[in-house]
Design a protein around this nucleic acid. Structure first.
Lengths: 157, 157
DNA sequence: CATTAGATGCATTTCATATGAATGTATAGA
DNA sequence: TCTATACATTCATATGAAATGCATCTAATG
């Protein structure tokens, strides 16, 4: 059982945007950061845009930014969006479907999975902003939009 | 996020074996029940055998049966086996891996998922034995647990 | 010893996913 | 206004894991 690359890249994109604050970041730049296909990321971004997670700005100097603060974006909502809401198994055509107790158990397990993610927000997984900015090669001058609190505070470990 | 067909078929096989009691059931028969590839199911079965979930009997009138009572087989253990124990994402090569908070959150969610499955046993999802026996076309005379009767019933085609 | 059924390795096919290419649309700046 | 840049959209292609098929081996039964 694996998260699709689609979800993986969507989450990484969101982390990069969270770290970049109000700065616009281009799809090309993000794709280069992770060494993935520009075209592929484009489609993922469109999904994120349509779902209201990010804002996209066209034209020269365009790019992406979060539509809301990272602290207001639920990881559960993100994963629900990127993974779709379909069940873990497809029982259509299965002979024993009417008598099978599996779907309900799997649905319960899936709910538990998503419930954990609902308890975290984007800001929780992008909390090491100092380290992340270094990795993303963001100049420290371009501080994350809101108040710049003590960078030492960001370290969670 | 989906369970692999591999897991799906493994679980279905286990349900059929649970419903068949001590009777040996051939791989061919199970494959025909679900309309899937005999060869494919063979490999899944081998995995279940090596992991100690089932007993396999070679030779004429051979087949499969559960290695332990269905009430002692945990669904969590089964899914852990069929899905492997690898994480939901592969972070090797990801630039931000050292600062990324995602893996730990996903691991926690996965644990919650498996914890739910650990709370159920094979017998829980195969509990509608009367209905299942009808679907599997198991004669009601062949009681769920005990001895075999009519040898003619062994032939699957 | 012939038949049945699981064990195993290898080749092939299938299909969702990922990638690439081409074109359209919107914005900024010279 | 013109050009460069960047997101939007559609269609075509490539890739890789999963599934399937085939051949051969081992084991058990009558």
């Amino acid at each position: 059982m694996k998260l699709s690359h689609h979800s993986d890249y969507a989450l990484r994109t969101m982390i990069q945007l969270a770290t970049s604050g109000d700065e616009l970041v281009s799809i090309r730049h993000i794709a280069q950061t992770y060494g993935i296909s520009h075209n592929h990321l484009m489609k993922i971004v469109q999904g994120l845009g349509r779902a209201g997670f990010i804002e996209t700005v066209r034209g020269r100097h365009g790019g992406l930014r979060l539509a809301r603060p990272a602290s207001e974006i639920s990881l559960g909502a993100l994963v629900r969006h990127t993974e779709g809401e379909n069940g873990l198994v497809d029982c259509t055509g299965c002979l024993i479907a009417p008598a099978c107790g599996l779907p309900s158990v799997l649905a319960e397990a899936m709910q538990a999975f998503l419930a954990v993610l609902d308890g975290y927000r984007l800001s929780d997984v992008a909390s090491r902003s100092h380290m992340l900015r270094a990795l993303f090669d963001i100049p420290t001058s371009a501080a994350p939009s809101q108040h710049a609190l003590d960078p030492a505070q960001c370290h969670t470990n």
